[in-house]
């Protein structure tokens, strides 16, 4: 039996900071930063939001869309690099908040920006093996960027949740394939506040090598070419990498336009590829083919070939991602620093 997406939900915090506001603080040329990173603004979580609250909001939205009973969920996996606890799962908070507990398995995943797609794969496996009826896969983050670092322009907050099952699918996942190596391009050591990265090393040997290889391999083994897809979404650490990756793979701008969100919401890390996919599903029609390839530093990519069903047109998501994209209020760097706990002496929980 086919495995796929029964329903999905998204969430973005309300607040935004513009790239030029960050550039102003650090004395950078705002136009150069915007152009260099392909980013205009990013989401900022409120003081009382974290990866768990974002995961819960996305999960509740996914439940409303799918119409399934929470008790039928047999597994919850939450992918994040900003789990509120180092020890104690985010997934159990989500489980309780959607009333799916206690008969289920749950765990947190971490794989930089691709833990959300890894969660989808975990759920697929359990569903296909017949061990669970539905799995809930979430990618959710309130990611951190060191003050003044280039990451600060992009590291944002948001998340998406997918209910994976076999019946009543709005999209069938035809295949998934992963490409994984040990590549230290970006990391955060235990107990450290901010991640570090290898600057230009994060490009060619890291992001591009994995995204290109993974996407090419999955297309090859399914005998598909870029022109066979209506849509494609690639991980979006900034506004430029996914555009370049698409070009290298042979996709045109029309195919990636809909799912390219980073310029307006920033890099939501584990939420990045899942949110891009959700944005496409909000509009895709029955029969549309989507290629989704995530990337997580460290490093690996997960690719998915997804075929949208007619059910997606009959049962549109009642809270499309655009609602959250449009709902925004700008904050200046001072308020941003307070909300993100970057002011010394302010004991804030990330």
């Amino acid at each position: 039996m086919a495995v796929g997406i029964v329903g999905y939900g998204t969430y973005l915090p309300k607040y935004r900071i513009k790239a030029e506001e960050i550039a102003r603080v650090w004395g950078k040329d705002p136009e150069a930063m915007k152009k260099g990173l392909g980013i205009y603004e990013k989401t900022v979580p409120n003081l009382d939001e974290d990866a768990a609250t974002i995961a819960v909001e996305a999960a509740r939205s996914a439940l409303r869309h799918s119409g399934i009973k929470p008790a039928d969920i047999g597994a919850i996996y939450v992918g994040s690099e900003s789990h509120p606890y180092a020890v104690k799962p985010t997934a159990t908070i989500v489980g309780a908040a959607i009333e799916a507990t206690p008969e289920l398995t749950a765990a947190d995943l971490e794989f930089a920006c691709k833990a959300g797609t890894a969660a989808i794969q975990c759920c697929m496996g359990l569903v296909e093996a017949g061990r669970i009826k539905y799995g809930l896969a979430i990618g959710s983050d309130t990611s951190q960027g060191m003050p003044g670092d280039v990451l600060e322009y992009t590291a944002s907050a948001g998340g998406a949740a997918f209910i994976i099952g076999e019946r009543n699918l709005i999209a069938q996942i035809k295949d998934t394939y992963s490409f994984t190596t040990d590549t230290p391009d970006f990391w955060r050591r235990e107990g450290q506040e901010f991640p570090r990265h290898g600057a230009r090393f994060t490009g060619e040997p890291a992001y591009f090598k994995h995204v290109i290889n993974c996407s090419n391999k999955i297309m090859e083994r399914n005998e598909l070419k870029p022109k066979d897809f209506q849509y494609a979404v690639f991980h979006q650490p900034n506004g430029r990498f996914p555009v370049k990756a698409a070009k290298l793979l042979g996709f045109d701008q029309e195919q990636i336009k809909l799912g390219l969100l980073t310029p307006w919401i920033g890099n939501t890390y584990s939420g990045s590829t899942p949110l891009g996919l959700a944005r496409i599903l909000d509009e895709a029609k029955g029969g549309d083919l989507i290629l989704a390839t995530s990337y997580g530093s460290g490093a690996g990519s997960d690719s998915f070939i997804i075929e949208v069903t007619k059910e997606n047109e009959r049962r549109r998501n009642p809270t499309p991602l655009q609602c959250f994209i449009d709902r925004k209020e700008y904050v200046d760097y001072a308020i941003y620093a307070k909300l993100k706990g970057k002011i010394k002496g302010v004991v804030l929980e990330k």
Partner: peptide, 14 residues
């Protein structure tokens, strides 16, 4: 909405 209400410092439960 589902939010953090109060946390017990930065090391206690949320």
């Amino acid at each position: 909405v589902f939010r953090k209400v109060i946390a017990d410092g930065s090391s206690g439960i949320i």
